[in-house]
């Protein structure tokens, strides 16, 4: 539109167009409802399969706990770290935000590396048995989400090189990356409980 139309909008009518408030955060939240149900479907399938099989996990499949626990601690703390970044940007401290976001991205990558390490050293593969099927598909799917989260954070960092791109008043992108990261974290906590803790105890 532009030009003519905008100039006509002078009769006290609220223009809803370009300047409409930024709904991206809201959109992301709505989208995350959907995402969590996707995981919900996987969790439901997992719990049903678990209920239908007498031994869970099947004989000879030992769930290893050390690396995943370290990984969990890293991922959960990264949620706090990224929050500092958010606090920083709200104070207009772009450098501070960048610092915390870098750390978060690094922690995410460490988590992924830990995941890969675990995959390489487990006594079972994707096809070994029904538990390992679930294990790899669910953790793999979550890992994909962590990767997306890291890419979002890197995207924020890339954009924040330009001075003024983010500020105390304009940091939707920063907030979105943070929300997504928290989401990934929450899903991990459920996954960790289901796949590791509840199979050991």
């Amino acid at each position: 539109m532009q030009g003519t139309v905008e100039s006509q909008e002078t009769r006290g009518v609220i223009d809803h167009h370009h300047e409409h408030p930024d709904f991206r955060v809201l959109g992301l939240l709505v989208f995350l409802i959907s995402e969590s149900l996707m995981f919900g479907g996987l969790f439901a399938a997992y719990l049903l399969l678990r209920g239908l099989n007498e031994q869970w996990p099947p004989e000879g499949t030992e769930v290893e706990l050390l690396v995943p626990t370290i990984n969990t601690i890293i991922l959960i703390s990264s949620s706090f770290v990224i929050h500092y970044g958010d606090v920083a940007i709200k104070k207009d401290d772009v450098q501070g935000m960048r610092k915390w976001y870098w750390i978060t991205a690094a922690m995410g990558l460490v988590f992924l590396a830990g995941q890969v390490y675990e995959y390489l050293n487990l006594g079972y593969g994707l096809r070994t048995n029904i538990f390992s099927n679930c294990f790899y598909v669910m953790t793999g799917f979550h890992g994909l989400h962590v990767l997306i989260g890291v890419l979002l954070i890197l995207g924020v960092l890339w954009r924040s090189r330009r001075p003024g791109h983010y500020s105390a008043h304009q940091h939707t992108g920063v907030a979105m990356a943070e929300i997504y990261w928290h989401f990934v974290d929450v899903i991990w906590i459920i996954l960790f409980t289901l796949l590791y803790i509840l199979t050991r105890f």
């Binding site: 959907s34 149900l37 479907g41």
Partner: peptide
């Protein structure tokens, strides 16, 4: 929003 992702999972 709430039902489609479950299909995707399946």
């Amino acid at each position: 929003l709430v039902s489609t992702p479950v299909l995707a999972a399946g």
